[in-house]
Amino acid sequence: MAFWFELVATGLITGGIYALVALGLNLQYGLMRIMNISHGEFLMLGAYLTWLGHTVLQVNPILFLPVVALALFALGVVVYWLCFRRIIRTAPAVEVIEARSLLVGFGLLFLVQNAAYLAWGADLRGYSFLTEAVDVGGARFQVNRLVVFAFAVGASLLLLAVLRWTLIGKAVRAMMQSPTGAQLVGIDTRFLHPVVFGLGLAMAGVAGALLSMVYEISPGMGEPYTVTALIVIVLGGLGSALGSLLGGFLLGLVETFGMHYTSPSLKMLLSYAVLIGVLLARPKGLFAR
């Protein structure tokens, strides 16, 4: 029993991070059709920021979370202004926005990832934080994992709440359903787009900060998360925030259980098999009606 519990919990912890990363990406895609393939690089920046905060400034990583979120939000607004605003304004069709933003995403990926290599080198970095183990329901967990889980789920739920209940959230959802209709009722995309893009990067940054508490970090750490996030948003449905949350947990569980019952080397095989299975059976995502 405890063993099952541990497996489920591990799956949920992984899934919580997946959900957080996917949510940000999905929000950007759903609102603006930006396929930001460099999403994971900003996760990596969040991780390095936290590591710097901890090792240089001796700040508790948890207290540093808001700083990371704000810094990446600001970075997101700048990146939006410099790179994506022009694409969205000049592209004649959404397919063109998707294609061009994908290319710019590659550019950002090269740029950010290699700048990080230049700045911090290829070595794995890390610090230890809350590594003692506690007993929860008969299973043992390191405290830092529980913290990561709590914050990942907390941040995801916070975002869902913002989307559901605040004015800006309602505006975002209206835009996702009908861009022209929303513009007619006076929703200002010049304000909304950079804010949502910034929000997406802030989520990625927080995810990176959380990951740095548990794993060692490196400039290449972000890429696999981008890929996983893409899988998650396709699982949950493009543009669906709740779908990303559920999809993240689902993928986390599938990976954990799958790896346990087959072999760890099959992890990616499992994710892709799930992705392709879902896309073939339900092209619009698992939770689409």
């Binding site: 397919e95 998707e98 396709v234 392709i276």
Partner: peptide
């Protein structure tokens, strides 16, 4: 189409 096709073709390669 669009992003779905991009993601699934990428996924197939990886698979």
């Amino acid at each position: 189409r669009g992003a779905y096709f991009a993601v699934i073709t990428f996924g197939l390669g990886e698979l």
